[in-house]
Design a protein around this nucleic acid. Structure first.
Ligand SMILES: [Zn+2]
Ligand SMILES: [Zn+2]
Length: 758
DNA sequence: AGGTATAGTAAA
DNA sequence: TTACTATACCTG
């Protein structure tokens, strides 16, 4: 690593894990001693490493796959270190069974990234590896099995004449084609007869051979670039100047300010140099539209990577990244681990989106690890958002990131006007104020579209007994069950349990059960009563469950003409609604008084993102925010000053209350059928952590959702002003935890930089 | 994780 | 007694 580069890395991730220094320090004593072993990373969720003997007849280098015995089974692992002094005695070591690769499947830089991730998130290396390596490579077949093959004539094939195929026109055709040049597998399969090929190979006239995947060849722009605004041009210049060095940028630009065009114009100069570009998106749903814009622009291969790919497609993308034949890869979280041959730039769109952090198992944040990767690769990284996270804004404030701002909408049109609708003075009709309904009518009459945002799917959040007030609850969670009218079920949105709608009250036996509260399914029904002539499109997880449903609903919305569009937060995620001129935010009051310190930030982002859907076409937009609390500081701030100013004051508040991003945090979670066991275990963790008084504790506390799927849930928060302090303590406490018998009786996990405090 | 030895328990 | 299931334990 170059000194300049290392400095920058520590800039963003200033910490030193105890494990890292243990692992990476070369042990010269071991080199001299007779017994040395190799350390292998194995796909098991264990926080230890495993060492093996390398039989003298075998040779292996770091980063190659090996097959090893493990208990009573065999596993494929990756050589992580050579010549280590084993941490168990010589007799306990088993020999490596086979070496699979001659050249590493994981390059050094990627191994460094994975080691870093395992240390930083205090997660077993084996599971980190599992997240990074395509499933097919974990099966242990040689790489050659997956590389493309081509066909050519053998010497005897070259010696024969066309006349020898007089009885088979198909064979003649293929043979003749091969006399001029070798043909790759795909060409032969698509243009020639399979049986002819088989016969020619049986006669040993044709043979197959392995080919290399060649780096891409850039053939220029496929469509002209758009004219940039002054702001956009500045942003492009700034990032271009950072080519070849690690430098993080934050691109803050309101919806419609042309962030994507900035991304697109950063790419050609890198393609000229043969470098690769990684574009990370928070959700699969955003890949199609992004793929379309990128592949339309460049005559170079643009690939996608996400969890819906088959194992084969995944490996293919992985190999193309490794060989340099992929120019641009557009992908979700785990694309971050692709083995690029020469990465020139990382772009993260919607960097504020919580989906960028994995919510189970290995809980990494793709944005944060991407910054680390950019540092290792010595390339710039650009984070884009209309509503940047407080983390990134703080990094700008601290001088770690360079902030680039796009102030105006690229089309020159005005930002939508935001108006609060005070519900206290109003008689509501189906949850809508008279004022909202009147303005909806007005826009629909003009042939415009109206969008309604309601972040609650289903028909109603619960059913209630009219006689005794009993509410339908989930048997296994401390939560009500949502009534879904269409599927005639009560569904628990926390554990997924469903049951038929009861005829009688569970408390008093009354049959007078009625829905309480309103979800999207109910609002849809009411809208078609209020506006019988207007088509309604509902976008939520239920209406888009069917394969292809999402795309067809989006297509519906792209049609001009009056339409009501209603949906959940799905509406906030980067899709274009060209004919929407009015957005009605039906009810977000629940989020105004949440206990989660991140709730205001998330609400601010959500409101701004939803509001941004108004007036992206030619018409000026308007946003109506219905609320019982029009005087609430957050709403006032957002309405009067916009997101940027709101975020500044929110960040100031975090500073004053000593919360992230101004402090570093980690969270222990515990889950068990017996509540006391969780509390007891977390108390043990808390007690141990008291040895470091500079790390503040909060808890053990019951989680906001006390019981989920039959298990009680507790958490313990840890906060520290300095990252190294916190991480050293975590390493120590984890070593301790593995010795406790209680640790095996409950399910526990550690969440570093936890975002979701549920 | 996943395989296995072992303890616990219901039927025959 | 056997047959099956829940649980503790271990992996180099
Ligand atoms: Zn439930
Ligand atoms: Zn009742």
């Amino acid at each position: 690593m170059q000194p300049e580069n290392r400095k920058s890395t520590e800039f963003c991730f200033a910490w030193q894990g105890a494990r890292a220094s243990l692992n990476l320090k070369p042990d010269f004593v071991a080199m001299e001693a007779a017994v040395t072993a190799i350390r292998v990373a194995l796909p098991v969720p264990l926080r230890q490493h495993f060492d093996y003997l390398l039989p003298p007849e075998l040779e292996v280098s770091i980063g190659c796959r090996v097959r090893v015995p493990f208990g009573k089974r065999e596993l494929v692992g990756i050589v992580w270190q050579l010549a280590v002094k084993p941490d168990v005695s010589e007799q306990q070591l088993k020999p490596v069974l086979a070496v699979i690769d001659q050249t590493p499947v994981l390059p050094a830089l990627l191994r460094q990234l994975l080691s870093f991730a395992a240390d930083y998130y205090h997660h077993p290396l084996g599971e980190v590896l599992t997240a990074a390596l395509p499933a097919l490579l974990r099966e242990g077949r040689p790489l050659a099995d997956y590389l493309p093959r081509a066909y050519r004539l053998t010497d005897s094939g070259k010696a024969v004449h066309l006349q020898s195929f007089s009885r088979s026109a198909k064979q003649a055709e293929l043979w003749q084609a091969l006399t001029t040049q070798a043909l790759d597998e795909a060409t032969v399969k698509s243009h020639y007869s399979g049986s002819a090929l088989k016969q020619l190979m049986a006669k040993e006239l044709v043979e197959s051979f392995q080919t290399e995947i060649a780096p891409y060849h850039y053939r220029g722009l496929a469509e002209p670039a758009l004219q940039l605004t002054a702001d956009q041009a500045l942003a492009v210049t700034a990032v271009n100047q950072a080519q070849g060095s690690f430098r993080p940028f934050l691109l803050e630009g309101v919806t419609g300010s042309g962030k994507t065009e900035v991304y697109l114009q950063l790419i050609p100069s890198l393609l000229e140099l043969g470098q690769q570009i990684l574009v990370l998106l928070p959700e699969i749903g955003l890949t199609p539209q992004t793929l379309e814009r990128f592949s339309k622009r460049f005559r170079a291969p643009v690939l996608v990577w996400h969890s819906n790919l088959s194992d084969g497609e995944r490996l293919n993308c992985w190999l193309q990244a490794a060989s340099g034949s992929a120019a641009v890869v557009i992908g979700t979280r785990s694309a971050l681990f692709l083995p690029f041959r020469k990465l020139g730039l990382i772009i993260i769109d919607e960097e504020h989106d919580l989906s960028l952090k994995q919510q189970d198992g290995f809980r990494y944040h793709a944005r944060d690890l991407a910054i680390k990767r950019a540092a290792l690769e010595c390339c710039p990284i650009l984070l884009g958002s209309a509503t940047p996270s407080l983390e990134s804004l703080y990094n700008c404030q601290q001088g770690r990131f360079t902030k680039l701002t796009l102030t105006a909408r690229a089309s020159g049109q005005a930002m939508p006007q935001l108006e609060l609708v005070d519900l206290k003075q109003q008689v509501l009709q189906y949850g809508l104020a008279a004022q909202s309904i009147q303005q909806m009518h007005q826009q629909l009459k003009l042939g415009k579209q109206v969008m309604l945002f309601l972040n609650r799917r289903g028909f109603a959040p619960a059913l209630s007994c009219q006689d005794c007030g009993w509410l339908t609850e989930c048997q296994r969670c401390s939560a009500f069950t949502t009534y879904h009218k269409h599927s005639r079920q009560l569904v628990c949105h926390h554990c997924g349990a469903t049951r038929a709608v009861p005829r009688q009250c569970g408390g008093c036996g009354s049959t007078r059960l009625a829905p309480v509260g309103q979800g999207t399914e109910q609002l849809e029904e009411h809208l078609s009563v209020l506006f019988p002539e207007v088509p309604v499109t509902r976008l939520d997880r239920d209406s888009t469950r069917r394969k292809g449903a999402f795309a067809s609903l989006l297509a519906e919305i792209q049609q001009p003409g009056p339409r009501l569009i209603l949906g959940t937060q799905m509406l906030a995620k980067g899709h274009h609604f060209p004919f929407v001129t009015l957005v009605v935010i039906v009810d977000v009051d629940g989020a105004l008084y949440s206990a989660d310190f991140r709730a205001p930030e998330q609400l601010g982002q959500l409101l701004t993102q939803v509001a941004g859907r108004a007036g992206r076409g030619h018409d000026k937009g308007k946003v109506l925010l219905q609320t019982q609390h029009p005087e609430h500081a957050l709403l006032q701030d957002i309405m009067l000053n916009g997101y940027a100013a709101f975020a500044r004051s929110a960040l100031l508040e975090r500073q004053q209350t000593l919360l992230p991003p101004c402090q570093y945090m980690a969270l222990f979670r515990a889950e068990a059928h017996q509540s006391e066991l969780c509390q007891q275990w977390l108390q043990q963790v808390a007690s141990y952590c008291q040895q470091q008084p500079q790390v503040q504790q909060l808890g053990p506390l019951l989680s906001p959702l006390e019981r989920r799927a039959g298990k009680y849930r507790w958490q313990l928060h840890l906060y520290a002003a300095q990252r190294p302090l916190l991480h050293q303590l975590l390493s120590q406490v984890l070593a301790e935890v593995s010795q406790w018998p209680l640790s095996r009786k409950i399910k526990w996990q550690l969440d570093v930089d936890a975002l979701d405090l549920n």
